[in-house]
């Protein structure tokens, strides 16, 4: 394990400190927690709180700021944050207008956030939640846990955050978040594994000539282990899984995110985007905006995910609204 760290036990704490030290204009750390909140919390508005295990940076602390999240709660690496930390975040950002929790659909996240919600409600705070499940690599079924939440979550932060910033009510903010969730789909793939610092060895193995399609952002196995394919083939596969799950008609407008998982250079992400853009062009799906970079990573995993968000006028306006965060501006 080659990492620029001091001790596996302190990576999350030291990272949060490093973030707060780097961007005091944007975020501050709640004392004795792994919570980052907006530096300017004065405005009376619905508050947005998200979070999850660490190792997905810039998610979620990088999206705290004007027009996006009010607080992000960091758990241990790949481990949902605990209810006490979530509660501290909720209490810190509530301005009496209610709090929306943006949760990625993992059992642990859902349970911890729900416990925090119960605790906050017991203290008289109005809290609602949305659960993001954009990963089409997993079959959707109400019988089991359903799909995973991955990079599409960032679009939920952006759009719900923009509406909250405009002064909308908790119900309205929850509704738009759910609208995004219903219209966003993602799928990822990996070329190499990643290592949880405290574990010290890679979460899985993958041959020199192999890749894994549908890989989760915690190294959860995907749907297909194949010979490594070209960037164009990878892009085609990811796009076709997404469009199969969420058909898009000619003339429809989308936002595109080509998300790097950690170790994949921007060069390769842009090569993937080239093909994604061409595929959408062929299908006459209009691309309103493209985001290429690291939004929801998996430590130092190599690979990428593709996300499509189907836009309408409301979502377009909110997506384009200004935001001031560490990783989105």
């Amino acid at each position: 394990m080659k990492k620029l760290i001091n001790h596996p036990e302190y990576v999350v704490q030291e990272m949060i400190e490093g973030m707060a030290l780097a961007h005091p204009q944007i975020v501050k750390k709640l004392p004795d927690t792994h919570v980052l909140v907006r530096a300017d919390l004065s405005k009376e508005k619905v508050a947005l709180v998200s979070g999850g295990g660490s190792g997905h940076e810039p998610s979620h602390g990088g999206f705290v700021g004007t027009g996006m999240l009010d607080a992000a709660v960091a758990g241990e690496v790949f481990t949902s944050p605990t209810p006490d930390q979530l509660l501290a975040a909720i209490k810190a950002v509530d301005r009496g207008k209610g709090v929306l929790l943006v949760i990625k659909n993992y059992s642990g996240d859902v349970m911890n956030f729900e416990m925090a919600m119960e605790l906050a409600e017991a203290e008289g705070i109005q809290v609602k939640k949305v659960i993001v499940d954009d990963d089409v690599a997993v079959k959707n079924s109400t019988y089991t846990v359903g799909r995973r939440g991955i990079a599409g979550t960032v679009f939920v932060h952006k759009i719900a955050g923009a509406l909250a910033e405009q002064g909308a009510s908790l119900d309205e903010v929850q509704k738009v978040a759910e609208k995004v969730i219903s219209r966003v789909r993602s799928m990822g793939m990996a070329l190499s594994p990643c290592t949880i610092p405290a574990v010290g060895k890679p979460g899985f193995e993958i041959g020199e000539d192999e890749m894994e399609m549908g890989m989760g952002i915690h190294g959860e196995p995907g749907i297909d282990r194949t010979k490594i394919a070209s960037a164009d083939e990878v892009a085609s596969t990811l796009v076709s899984y997404i469009l199969e799950d969420m058909p898009c008609r000619e003339g429809e407008r989308v936002a595109v995110m080509i998300n790097g998982l950690g170790a994949t250079p921007l060069m390769e992400l842009y090569i993937v985007n080239r093909k994604v853009a061409k595929l959408l062009q062929e299908k006459q799906i209009q691309v309103h905006k493209t985001f290429v970079g690291e939004y929801m990573t998996s430590l130092e995993m190599a690979g990428c995910s593709v996300t499509l968000l189907k836009l309408d006028d409301q979502l377009t306006e909110l997506l384009d609204a200004p935001a001031q965060t560490i990783a989105w501006s």
């Binding site: 481990t79 605990t82 993992y106 642990g108 349970m111």
Partner: peptide
Amino acid sequence: LIAKVGGASGPL
């Protein structure tokens, strides 16, 4: 355990 474990097993 709730405050220190996190993930799914902590709340459980």
